[in-house]
Simulated assay, not measured.
Amino acid sequence: MDELMPRRVYGTDADEPHPGPRPGHVYRELCGGPLDGLLLDVTGWTETERATGAPLRTDIGRFGPGGHSVYRPRPADPARWDWQGDAR
Score class of each variant (00 low, 15 high):
10 Y>V: 05
12 T>E: 05
5 M>A: 14
54 A>P: 04
47 E>L: 15
2 D>K: 13
83 W>I: 11
67 G>V: 11
84 Q>I: 15
28 R>K: 06
50 R>M: 12
7 R>D: 09
87 A>K: 05
15 D>T: 11
43 T>P: 03
55 P>L: 02
34 P>D: 05
11 G>D: 05
50 R>L: 08
72 R>G: 00
16 E>Q: 13
77 D>C: 12
34 P>G: 12
42 V>S: 00
28 R>Q: 07
83 W>F: 14
86 D>F: 04
43 T>R: 07
82 D>I: 13
10 Y>L: 05
65 P>C: 11
54 A>I: 12
36 D>K: 08
46 T>V: 10
24 G>A: 09
53 G>S: 02
67 G>E: 04
26 V>A: 06
53 G>R: 01
49 E>W: 07
60 I>M: 07
26 V>W: 01
7 R>K: 15
28 R>F: 09
53 G>L: 05
42 V>E: 01
9 V>W: 02
65 P>Q: 09
62 R>E: 05
42 V>H: 06
78 P>T: 10
69 S>G: 05
8 R>W: 11
30 L>F: 07
65 P>L: 12
65 P>I: 09
20 G>E: 07
18 H>Q: 11
57 R>H: 12
47 E>C: 02
34 P>R: 06
3 E>C: 13
38 L>H: 00
15 D>P: 03
82 D>R: 12
80 R>P: 13
2 D>Y: 08
32 G>D: 04
44 G>H: 04
15 D>K: 10
62 R>L: 07
59 D>N: 11
40 L>D: 00
1 M>R: 15
23 P>S: 10
86 D>E: 01
1 M>Q: 15
76 A>F: 09
7 R>V: 14
73 P>M: 04
60 I>N: 09
61 G>E: 06
46 T>D: 02
87 A>Q: 06
21 P>T: 05
14 A>Y: 11
43 T>D: 04
76 A>D: 08
39 L>W: 00
71 Y>W: 00
87 A>G: 09
47 E>F: 07
47 E>Y: 04
60 I>D: 03
88 R>P: 12
24 G>K: 00
16 E>A: 15
20 G>C: 04
35 L>R: 06
30 L>A: 02
78 P>A: 03
27 Y>H: 03
81 W>I: 02
75 P>R: 08
58 T>D: 00
25 H>T: 11
67 G>S: 08
49 E>K: 09
17 P>D: 06
79 A>R: 11
44 G>D: 06
1 M>A: 12
25 H>F: 07
53 G>C: 05
86 D>R: 03
13 D>N: 14
61 G>H: 02
85 G>L: 05
34 P>H: 06
